[in-house]
Design a protein around this nucleic acid. Structure first.
Lengths: 205, 205
DNA sequence: GTCTATAATCAGATAGAC
DNA sequence: GTCTATCTGATTATAGAC
């Protein structure tokens, strides 16, 4: 069911879609709060307010629940990339993207997965919506990175892939959580700090 | 049982200590490989080559197993900090420490814990050896950071705590694993890359 | 202290009525 | 599709013999 398709949807189907949206939203939040392993299906069902068996009518496994949340965040990322103004320079876009992911994390909306979990990896890599989205995002960012390097703004000596991975890693950087727990800075200040260390580094200039 | 105490240890006690060392070593490796949740006590016992019940004679719980591994890595960190030559400048020491933690991660010896697990946090914070070690390391690094900022090498506008957290976060940066999976670079090159992005940033200079 | 065998619990998934 | 009740397997932890 794709939101872009013109609708001839019955009331029943709308209710169904709304419920699935509620499920994915809850899963997204729980994944951000506690991570995949600590999140239980019972918890999801209770939080949504339906029985666990009903959940399994919508999604065949816990892994698929997580995958749905990842697809959602990937879609949001694609939408954000497309929303950036055409006149913005590549380097500024990259900063904007980093900012956006960090804000998402501080808002408790960045789902976090264990990179080692094999069954989860399998499910995710089997999900075309996810892999396609990831590839589009990576291609887009990769293009901007190379442009920014050609302009001499991003360090041209760094492999573009290393820059891309670094941006991805900053999206789930634990430094954000640490600084938030310290309660010494506003969310805005925290993001500014991490953006600065990410692009300008720890060294003085 | 502390290694620094002069010994009047019987042969039996030596055997016991050796076995506990083997256990902690195994736990350390498994924690680095799969993380706390995915590591099972059965697995640890099998890998060490003893029965699970025997394991529980040495360590009262899975959390205590992990804590022992964390204490070990903290001791190694303290030893490394002390080993740095006296003539080295603070900023160079910080780089050396970051290098050391990254090498540890690439070698599969950096135990990784879920930051959210509450029972684990409780056990860890109740462990004086761990908390004392963490405080000593933080104090030492914090001092170096402030000196390096006073010398104008590390950016003085950054809060020292933010710099400290950033260094801690780089010790378990997923970028290292990503780049290693790509198989395009040697471990040495990967570390150089991440050290560079950490201290000099992504931007060109 | 080490072992085998087992308890106890928890979580993912399903059966079957409505 | 939704529910209650249940199954199944995995995992932490322990009992009790030696």
């Amino acid at each position: 069911m794709n939101a872009r398709q013109p609708a001839k949807v019955s009331f029943k189907e709308q209710m169904l879609q709304a419920r699935e949206d509620a499920i994915v939203l809850t899963v997204n939040r729980l994944l951000a709060e506690k991570g995949f392993d600590a999140m239980t299906v019972d918890e999801v069902a209770a939080s949504v307010g339906i029985a666990k068996a009903s959940l399994y009518k919508h999604f065949p496994s816990k892994e698929d629940l997580a995958a749905a949340a990842m697809v959602r965040v990937m879609r949001r990322a694609q939408d954000f990339l497309r929303s950036l103004p055409a006149e913005q320079k590549p380097a500024e876009r990259l900063r904007a993207v980093a900012r956006w992911t960090m804000a998402l994390q501080l808002a408790g909306e960045m789902p976090s997965l264990p990179s080692q979990n094999s069954t989860l990896r399998t499910t995710l890599l089997a999900n075309r919506e996810y892999t396609d989205g990831l590839m589009e995002v990576s291609d887009t960012l990769g293009g901007w990175i190379e442009q920014a390097q050609a302009e001499g703004v991003i360090n041209p000596k760094l492999p573009a892939l290393a820059v891309l991975y670094t941006l991805y890693a900053r999206a789930c950087d634990p430094v954000l959580e640490f600084l938030k727990l310290g309660a010494q800075h506003t969310d805005e200040q925290i993001i500014d700090l991490v953006i600065s260390t990410c692009f300008e580094g720890l060294n003085a200039r």
